[in-house]
């Protein structure tokens, strides 16, 4: 049997399937972990409602814990409180930058409907650090990202949308 501390350590080694430089713990997907009599109960929260990685993540968590000797693993999905990019810690943000993804800037928006805004806020280029950047596309290769271009180093980069 695994202790709770050991189980957390195992989960810190489970990468996000679409952004493998950060773990499911660092992204804030794993909310709770509890050791029971005959196994472990893990509470996870989806990032986006339609994120296709959700099921892969649950299976990776189960496989990693069982490979480490956890026995039965019960995975519960919980929506409340809703996942927010505010849960991504500083270390994970550094890892995202090093991987070429600009981390979400500022706090996730709360309150009223988003204003219509044609000119997106400039984001810092994760490669050269310039803020002379422009948004190319509001949606990117995964539900959680938008596409930007740096005018200084001319490289495109992805931006993790704050939600």
């Amino acid at each position: 049997m695994l202790s709770e501390t050991q189980a957390w350590q195992v989960l810190e080694g489970v990468p996000d399937p679409e952004i493998p430089v950060v773990s499911v713990v660092e992204l804030g997907i794993v909310r709770e972990l509890a050791c029971g009599e005959d196994g472990l109960r893990v509470v996870v929260t989806p990032t986006y409602s339609g994120c296709p990685a959700t099921e892969v993540i649950a299976e990776s968590i189960r496989a990693a814990l069982q490979a480490a000797g956890a026995g039965e693993v019960d995975i519960e999905t919980r929506l409340d409180p809703a996942w927010t990019t505010d849960w991504i810690g500083e270390t994970a943000r550094d890892k995202l930058r090093a991987y070429g993804i600009a981390p979400p800037s500022g706090k996730a928006a709360v309150g009223g409907a988003q204003p219509i805004r044609f000119v997106a806020k400039a984001q810092t280029c994760p490669r050269c650090g310039s803020t002379d950047t422009e948004r190319l596309s509001e949606f990117g290769a995964t539900a959680c990202k938008a596409l930007y271009r740096c005018r200084a180093c001319r490289e495109p980069f992805e931006y993790f949308k704050p939600i």
């Binding site: 989806p46 986006y48 409602s49 929506l79 409340d80 409180p81 809703a82 996942w83 927010t84 996730a108 928006a109 409907a113 988003q114 204003p115 219509i116 805004r117 044609f118 509001e138 949606f139 949308k161 939600i163």
Partner: peptide, 25 residues
């Protein structure tokens, strides 16, 4: 449960609104 689904989906709907609104203009 409905409140939790709504709170989660609201973030997505806001983004859709802003994107579609810009295109309408």
């Amino acid at each position: 449960e409905l409140a939790a689904i709504a709170a989660k989906s609201l973030k997505e709907a806001r983004y859709h609104l802003s994107h579609a609104g810009e295109w309408v203009i």
